[in-house]
Design a protein around this nucleic acid. Structure first.
Length: 730
DNA sequence: AATATTCCCGTTTTT
DNA sequence: CGGGAATATT
């Protein structure tokens, strides 16, 4: 037995380098792992978890907090693969807090079945709060208030505390809305994302018994991406490890990219001050990227003033130069990438190894079109978007209402969905009645018979109340069963069947939702409807990324954190876009630089940075300027490609970015390019009545013959050969 | 009351 | 450009 444990431990540590081993074998006391990109952090953390579980503690005493659900899932799998560590808690801060708040709901003074409000819900609630505070809807846009309140909550400011700090008129007005918003949340037994964290932080501070219980439960706490923790998360971490001090934080200050949502880079910088006996381990050897990629990343991040020096190094080969490609416009940029990916694919590169990153989601559209056009399979990391679809939100609203009748947002969403003749006037009366009688709308609904002046609508309202009661019988079923029941009995299925949708029909998405629920139940047996609803509320965009199928992955730079791909494209390196500026006032340039740093360091083999000279933004095409970040990269490691605009002097019609297919001008000697055989020269061209036959000699010395209109040939401008070197836009 | 149409606005990143 | 709200139409 003893020797088998020793063998296990040996296996856990044998392929680690010295600092990695030090981190993995550190058991008690605070540990800070400063891990550069690609330094094997995940490996170290999983080994350490397994090591702890077979040496000093039991798996169920280990709490590992990750940044996304996907990361949690992967970590659990990897630790399991190292030898049966079932019982470990691995989840995100938000999931942990939601779970704790259900467990300690009485202490928190909230229903066990509380609802988690997403952005849309919150904005609806804010509109209501603005109304109740007697303010003009027009002057107080929900989005801005939402951001301000979220900001306050991230700083753990209660409405009172916020009011005390409000100095200008705008903040003073918001300090009138904030308490109303809080009251409405409470009335609806709902919490927003920030509440999940804040409430737990407050409970841990005020309730010593709960804190002690949890500290004993979670004897070893691991927190990943510590550079992106905010005030609440920081405090939760502190409270959970106050006595045992067994806290292990991992992260990289240079990858702190969530300052805008309250993350405080100071948390990681001051870790040693907070935990005086901290052992610090630096992981600086990079196993992921080529030397050129790493040197580009290093040169860029060195421009940040506010940072701790760090030496990133690698033994990997130099690799190919980092490419910087300037296209004429966004469509040409996307086409260039699509074509480049096509070429890689033909060379045998798996599409799984390719990713395209961008600063804002709106840039994905042009890429998507280019991928479709080139028949390149792709996936976009947007797990949240699926749950934001109207039909999905409708279905979920039914379930939410069944679980939590106080959820007025859900109720109002479905009261007339599918249409059942309950119009705006009737709804207004119901809401009014609820307000004057101090009841929830749901309560009013249940007594529809007693509500005066509903007129002809009374019967319909009654029927709806009866429907809800009927649907309620499914509340204790597993999520997929409850879903089926609700969809078929609410009339939603019939409603969506009736709508003919050739483009991704709502009913297909609803079926997909049922599948997702069934899958969830398989993976987490014994879970309830509430668990599943919570799961749907806390999905992140990256959670939707699958790594099994042969597809190119498109995502924002933020979503890319923690991932790696052999071939990486970062697009839109333009001033104002990356770094992003909003409305004249510039943002945090250093954080933007870190964001690009994150993007660059995702690349294993080849990195391509791209910009377009013209880009369409919200409907209008604008001239762009190159990102200043490009000037910060080491010139001699780069390979610039300037794709020329079609030249007007040739007098041919221009189309996005490349040379036109002016076949009639092609002649012997014309330089062409083929997707597979690359550069070639026309040897002969035979213009028949039906077809034009070309014979082309390629750089491999061989020549090939095609009917011109079917050959995948594009003309190459001889002037561009030097510049273009292997690329052209189409 | 339901559906069709127009118009107006905001413009990141996300749990 | 695209979503949501206000407005027009049946």
């Amino acid at each position: 037995m003893q020797s088998s444990t020793e063998a296990t431990i040996y296996a856990l540590l044998e392929d680690l380098n010295e600092p990695q081993r030090q981190a993995a074998t550190h058991t008690d006391g605070p540990l800070l792992i400063l891990a550069g990109p690609g330094s094997g952090k995940t490996r170290v953390v999983t080994r350490r978890a397994a090591y702890l579980a077979c040496t000093t503690t039991k798996p169920w005493h280990i709490l590992a907090i990750t940044f996304t659900n996907k990361a949690a899932r992967e970590m659990r799998e990897r630790v399991d693969a190292l030898g049966g560590t079932g019982g470990m808690t691995v989840c995100t801060f938000h999931a942990l807090c939601a779970r704790l708040l259900r467990e300690f709901h009485e202490l928190a003074g909230i229903s066990r079945n509380f609802t988690i409000f997403d952005r849309d819900d919150r904005r609806k609630l804010i509109k209501k709060a603005v109304e109740e505070a007697d303010l003009s809807q027009a002057n107080w846009p929900p989005a801005a208030i939402d951001a301000e309140i979220s900001h306050a909550k991230n700083a753990m400011l209660s409405p009172e505390a916020y009011a005390a700090t409000a100095n200008d008129w705008r903040q003073q007005t918001i300090s009138r809305i904030y308490p109303v918003y809080e009251r409405l949340l409470a009335e609806m037994e709902a919490l927003d994302f920030d509440d999940l964290l804040m409430r737990v932080a407050v409970l841990l501070k005020t309730d010593e018994q709960m804190r002690a219980t949890l500290e004993d439960r979670y004897r070893y706490v691991l927190i990943d991406e510590y550079q992106d923790t905010n005030v609440s998360q920081y405090q939760i971490a502190r409270h959970l490890s106050r006595e045992h001090q067994n806290i292990c934080a991992t992260g990289d200050p240079d990858q702190s990219i969530y300052g805008w949502r309250g993350a405080d880079i100071g948390n990681i910088l001051n870790f040693e001050r907070d935990y005086p006996s901290t052992k610090v381990v630096r992981l600086e050897q990079n196993y992921r990227s080529t030397r050129r990629v790493l040197s580009a990343a290093d040169a860029l991040i060195a421009q940040n003033e506010n940072r701790k020096e760090k030496t990133l190094w690698t033994q990997n080969e130099a690799g190919t130069p980092v490419r910087v490609i300037e296209s004429e416009n966004d469509m040409a940029e996307a086409a260039m990438i699509a074509e480049d990916i096509g070429r890689l694919s033909r060379e045998g590169v798996s599409l799984n190894d390719i990713a395209i990153f961008y600063r804002v989601n709106s840039l994905s559209r042009v890429l998507e079109e280019a991928m479709l056009k080139s028949v390149i399979p792709y996936q976009i990391a947007r797990g949240v978007e699926f749950y934001a679809r109207k039909e999905i939100k409708d279905v979920l609203a039914y379930l939410r209402l069944l679980v939590n009748p106080a959820d007025e947002i859900a109720l109002l969403r479905i009261i007339n969905m599918p249409p059942r003749g309950i119009g705006a006037k009737t709804i207004e009366r119901l809401v009014e009645q609820a307000k004057t009688s101090g009841q929830s709308v749901f309560d009013v609904l249940s007594q529809a018979g007693d509500v005066s002046d509903l007129g002809r609508s009374a019967a319909k309202v009654k029927a709806f109340a009866e429907l809800v009661r009927h649907l309620g019988t499914a509340v204790n079923q597993p999520a997929s069963k409850a879903l089926e029941f609700v969809i078929s009995h609410s009339g939603l299925r019939a409603h969506y069947r009736a709508i003919e949708g050739t483009d991704d029909a709502p009913i297909n998405n609803i079926d997909e939702l049922i599948n997702a629920a069934a899958e969830f139940e398989m993976q987490e047996p014994g879970t309830t409807l509430v668990d599943w609803l919570e799961h749907t509320a806390l999905v992140s965009d990256v959670d939707a990324v699958k790594d099994t199928s042969g597809v190119v992955t498109l995502m924002t730079l933020h979503a890319a954190k923690g991932l790696e791909f052999a071939h990486v494209y970062v697009i839109g390196l333009e001033r104002g876009l990356l770094p992003f500026y909003r409305n004249g006032d510039e943002g945090d340039d250093e954080e933007e630089r870190r964001l690009l740093f994150v993007g660059i360091t995702r690349a294993r083999k080849r990195l391509t940075l791209s910009r377009a000279r013209y880009r369409m933004r919200r409907g209008v095409t604008e001239r762009t300027a190159a990102s200043d970040f490009l000037d910060e990269l080491p010139r001699n490691e780069l390979e610039w490609h300037r794709l020329e605009a079609p030249r007007a002097r040739r007098g041919v019609t221009t189309h996005a970015g490349g040379l036109p297919n002016d076949f009639d001008r092609w002649d012997v000697g014309t330089l062409v390019r083929h997707p597979r055989y690359d550069l070639g020269r026309i040897l002969s061209i035979d213009r028949g009545a039906q077809r034009t036959i070309v014979d082309v000699e390629f750089t491999d010395g061989l020549h090939r013959t095609w009917a011109l209109e079917f050959a995948q040939l594009t003309r190459v401008d001889p002037d561009e050969i030097d510049d273009v070197d292997g690329f052209q836009a189409d």
